[in-house]
Design a protein around this nucleic acid. Structure first.
Lengths: 131, 131
DNA sequence: CGCCATAGTATCATTTTTGATACTACTACT
DNA sequence: AGTAGTAGTATCAAAAATGATACTATGGCG
């Protein structure tokens, strides 16, 4: 994403990369949403809603729209019955996966209790990085 | 930081590492504050205030206190004349530097215009990672 | 027809974050 | 005694993010 299509253009204009990133990934849920899509390749709206404990439907919709507008995820509508929507990572989103993975690994190592057991296997993480 | 000393304990209790990280680094300025302290080793309050374009004194104070409470930075008061305060990274903060660096490099590569020239040399980045 | 599941939208309230502004405390210097 | 520079605090207002709730649209099924 090298063109200026981000939601908050003032930040982009100054191009303080770190500020832009913080703006783009602002909010309580963005990291987690991206992670869930990354680890599962595809995520449906309903599954995300049930996975993100405490989020409301309207907030999830808004977060997903922002991630879409900022070019991280792609939204595919399936008109089968019942109709549903699938979210996948775009090329930009995929390029962000190594950063996301490092964040996850750091968080597991430093923010969790010593007896915390990660739900993600080394294989999952490795696969994520090799895509 | 493997003990439960974070500001928002509910998140910590559930230990969803990604959520904890997003909570701990919430706000418009945290990434940038950490980056400025990391790249300069030491930062004074006044310098940070002038570096972070648009932040107010009270907001900067609050952000710094939160980073301190969450164990990322250390606050050292110098009673010389005029007295001043210096902020440095703690061990936890230093352990986060590789993540921060990767975030910065990704942001420069993907969020900035093609003609953007980084103000940071490769040596600075390398040094940052070798600490 | 009424109900289910899907994935929303719309509206308003609440909470959280940030900003604006004015104030304090310290002491060296003039 | 007054001023300057440091790093704050305190209070209130404004803005942004999130939540609660009710609503829509689709079409199959009993």
């Amino acid at each position: 994403m090298t063109d200026n299509k981000f939601r908050k253009r003032e930040v982009m204009a100054r191009c303080v990369p770190m500020s832009t990133l913080q703006t783009v990934l602002s909010g309580k849920w963005k990291f987690l949403i991206l992670w869930y899509i990354a680890i599962n390749k595809v995520q449906r709206f309903g599954v995300l809603l049930r996975s993100l404990d405490g989020i409301t439907q309207s907030t999830l919709t808004k977060q997903l729209r922002e991630l879409e507008d900022d070019g991280f995820i792609h939204r595919e509508i399936y008109k089968e019955m019942p109709p549903h929507v699938e979210y996948t990572l775009t090329e930009l989103g995929k390029s962000f996966v190594p950063v996301l993975t490092q964040m996850m690994m750091w968080s597991q190592a430093h923010l969790c209790a010593p007896d915390y057991v990660s739900p993600y296997t080394e294989e999952q993480i490795k696969e994520l990085l090799n895509q």
